[in-house]
């Protein structure tokens, strides 16, 4: 069963002077539980694709279907709820909120779930932080953590809501090789043990080869 299906996706950025084609007629299917890498040179449209899959941006043309839901038919409020329940994001620059401590950063997706009690949220956050070896850092702020720890917090935030899809945009791009390997191990663990579908944008050929499939892009087109 396809978790992610993209049909005839194009994305055009328009300004007053120029028109830039970021994605051209992309068709893609990713199965449930698959770990897919997206590779390609800078500016080829990888991140744009990830944003469209993550419903953070809309395609100019084409249909995005996630978990058998045609997302083109969802309004902004429903898209937010869909993201909250089904998609987790891991960013290259972590994007933790500096004014919140680790617990509050991880709890962020749950704070938008009004059907969950405060005690349930707390329990879930503690479980995830313990799993990722961060239970001793719960009260720390992002500025008090190493890069690897920050990315682990970001992964905890991405999975705390138990989403079926995790989208990672160069998750090891800001880390040294040792910490990068730690993060990759966690992502593989999440894929294997939890059966989550993971789509990762990366420049690292070695890391990409360890995933189930590599999709390559060039100038907005899927080339492999």
């Amino acid at each position: 069963m396809e978790t992610i299906r993209l049909k005839d996706i194009s994305k055009v950025y328009r300004t007053k002077e120029i028109e830039t084609l970021a994605l051209e007629n992309v068709n893609l299917e990713i199965r449930e539980g698959e770990f897919v890498s997206i590779m390609g040179p800078s500016g080829c449209g990888k991140s744009t694709l990830l944003n469209i899959i993550g419903l953070l941006d809309t395609p100019t043309t084409g249909v995005v279907s996630l978990l058998n839901t045609d997302t083109n038919k969802l309004n902004d409020s429903k898209l937010s709820s869909f993201r909250n329940r089904n998609i987790g994001f891991v960013f290259q620059s972590f994007h933790l909120i500096p004014s919140l401590n680790v617990t509050d950063n991880v709890a962020l997706p749950l704070s938008y779930r009004h059907d969950m009690s405060a005690s349930e949220r707390k329990k879930r956050v503690e479980e995830v932080l313990t799993r990722l070896g961060l239970s001793h850092r719960m009260r720390h702020y992002p500025t008090q953590l190493s890069g690897g720890q920050c990315q682990r917090v970001a992964i905890a935030r991405a999975i705390v809501g138990d989403p079926k899809i995790v989208l990672a945009d160069e998750p090891t791009g800001n880390l040294d090789s040792k910490m990068g390997q730690e993060v990759m191990d966690i992502l593989h663990q999440l894929n294997r043990e939890d059966g989550r579908t993971i789509v990762m944008v990366t420049h690292n050929e070695h890391q990409a080869r360890m995933t189930d499939r590599i999709i390559r892009f060039f100038d907005g087109r899927q080339v492999e």
Partner: peptide, 16 residues
Amino acid sequence: VSEIGVRRAFGAKKVD
């Protein structure tokens, strides 16, 4: 700005 983007990514509605 990025915090607002991150909140939106993780499910915050405009009204939130």
